[in-house]
Amino acid sequence: MTDTAEDTQSSPDTQKWICETCGYVYDPEEGDEDGGIPPGTPFDDIPKDWFCPVCGARKKDFRALEPGEEVPD
């Protein structure tokens, strides 16, 4: 099952971001607890030294999901 980014982009607090190298999606609702990011943390508030849990890419290598773009469920 997939949903789209349309319903998640109403505010920066819920905007999902995708790693351009591996496709990992950061969802503020889930956070990244193993990476020290609690659920509910907007992407902008993540420390700059945080990195993608799959491929190691840096925060600057993520981009906001486009409206209508498919999100892996």
Binding site: T21, C22, G23, V54, C55, G56, A57, D61
Partner: peptide, 14 residues
Amino acid sequence: VARDEHRHVAYGTW
């Protein structure tokens, strides 16, 4: 170099 290696690691993880 790191950006290339992120791609490589993404392959290995996949």
